[in-house]
């Protein structure tokens, strides 16, 4: 079954990059340009994995992950954080918010795909 990935990033270049890499790996890709937009999409869609950025306008990655986890039905969705942040505090916050994994940009598409496969299998 084709898996659906929701990517949440405010940079269009990054979203394009993710879509390009993930579609090439055979995933269906949904895109949101910040946390609030991501939540809107989650009203109607249920992705298999979520990949989110941290620094975004309107609603950042922490708020987004918390909101995702706040919903019973979305507890099981793996959320990978894809960010340029290397700050351990931030990573801890992401973990506390309920992130499944943490990937530091620049990402290697093959390894991102691998990470997604791992958390979604």
């Amino acid at each position: 079954m084709q898996k659906t990935i929701l990517t949440v990033d405010d940079s269009r270049a990054m979203r394009d990059m993710l879509r390009h890499s993930l579609m090439a790996a055979g995933f269906k890709v949904l895109q949101a340009d910040d946390g609030l937009h991501g939540l809107e999409l989650l009203e109607t869609e249920m992705p298999d994995v979520i990949v989110t950025d941290i620094n975004m306008p309107r609603m950042d990655g922490f708020g987004f992950i918390e909101a995702v986890r706040a919903h019973e039905s979305r507890r099981a969705v793996p959320v990978l954080v894809l960010t340029t942040e290397v700050d351990i505090d931030k990573k801890q916050r992401a973990k506390e918010a309920g992130a499944t994994g943490w990937i530091v940009k620049p990402f290697d598409p093959a390894r991102l795909v691998e990470a997604i496969r791992r958390v979604s299998s």
Partner: peptide, 15 residues
């Protein structure tokens, strides 16, 4: 959680 690579480096940590 000390999996740190250079700024520019890739790292992945599976919580």
């Amino acid at each position: 959680g000390s999996i740190i690579t250079g700024d520019n480096g890739f790292s992945f940590e599976f919580f």
